[in-house]
């Protein structure tokens, strides 16, 4: 693609070079952004960990950043985040996968042309709107037959789940469409039905892409902020896994919601609570970054597989 510059006109070359470096600077800005994110998080997080040990932070079971006696155990927040992640995964993974199968194996070209943009809309609705929906429509509707708290993990999980369906479906569908048609034809030739071909040939062949979509979607759920801040509550508690129902029916607090809560009061302070914001932020960043990286690496593998 790249073409050698045969021009010997000095000014031209100089100008061409100048633009080249200018554009390169723009591209490098993205690396600078990553560095800036890591540095901003690290500077205050390091300060924080000078006072609160990493072990205390990672294994503590009480989160009370401003209320005496203060405690900075992140486990309650991580457990809250896990509840939302598992809840939304239960909604989005099966639905997203089935959607991908439908779009790739069953839907006609015309139908796909309508369905795909419609699905993308799900990811395009601002999350604050989803949060509002969860609080004022979903929770009251579910409350008619479930003993729900006003702020609960259930409606928030459902909404987060709906929001991430298109992430699962579009990447999985890409992977399924990349499966060579010869594989399908071979199975049909053996008398297999579409169901069999879909579940026993296409899905296994596209499994790395599907896996990649799952990871990416879960990473989105972990980082989702507004839906949980509005609808899931602000009660940092270590969830009790022996009581799965109570886990979803009550108010919890995720890492992101805790950040919003501290953010509204202690935002420009210099105290421990302010610094804890960056420690939680760093934890969140490390988790999601690792997941995105894994997803990206797996995805690039499947892209190579069938190309």
């Amino acid at each position: 693609m790249s073409q050698p510059d045969f021009s010997h006109d000095g000014i031209r070359t100089a100008r061409g070079k100048a633009f080249r470096y200018l554009f390169m600077l723009c591209a490098l800005l993205s690396i600078l952004t990553t560095v800036a994110i890591i540095l901003t998080l690290l500077v205050d997080a390091v300060d924080f960990f000078a006072e609160i040990s990493l072990v205390e932070f990672l294994t503590g079971t009480r989160w009370s950043p401003t209320n005496e006696p203060v405690a900075f155990g992140v486990l309650p927040l991580i457990s809250g985040t896990l509840v939302i992640t598992v809840g939304s995964a239960l909604v989005a993974l099966p639905i997203g996968l089935l959607t991908a199968i439908y779009l790739s194996e069953y839907a006609s070209e015309r139908r796909r042309a309508y369905l795909k943009p419609a699905l993308e809309v799900l990811a395009g609705v601002p999350t604050v709107v989803y949060g509002y929906f969860a609080l004022v429509y979903v929770t009251p509707a579910l409350d008619t037959f479930l003993p729900l708290s006003t702020f609960n993990a259930l409606s928030a999980s459902i909404m987060v789940g709906i929001m991430i369906i298109p992430m699962v479906s579009s990447i999985s569908e890409d992977a399924m469409s990349a499966v060579p048609d010869s594989l399908r034809q071979a199975s049909y030739g053996l008398g297999a039905t579409k169901f069999t071909v879909s579940t026993s040939v296409v899905v296994p062949a596209a499994v790395s892409g599907i896996f990649s979509s799952f990871i990416l979607a879960l990473s989105r759920a972990i980082g989702e902020t507004m839906i949980v801040a509005i609808a899931a509550g602000q009660t940092p508690r270590l969830v009790d896994v022996t009581d799965p129902a109570g886990l979803f029916l009550n108010s919890i607090q995720t890492m992101t919601a805790a950040m919003v809560q501290i953010g509204t009061g202690d935002i420009v302070g210099q105290g421990e609570a302010y610094k804890s914001l960056f420690a939680v932020g760093l934890t969140l960043f490390v988790i999601t970054f690792a997941m995105n990286l894994v997803s990206e690496l797996v995805a690039s593998r499947y892209r190579e597989e069938y190309r």
Binding site: I37, L41, S219, R220, G223, E224, V260, L284, F285
Partner: peptide, 9 residues
């Protein structure tokens, strides 16, 4: 893929 709340920080 970085969560928007981290960009806020």
């Amino acid at each position: 893929g970085v969560p928007s709340v981290v960009y806020g920080l």
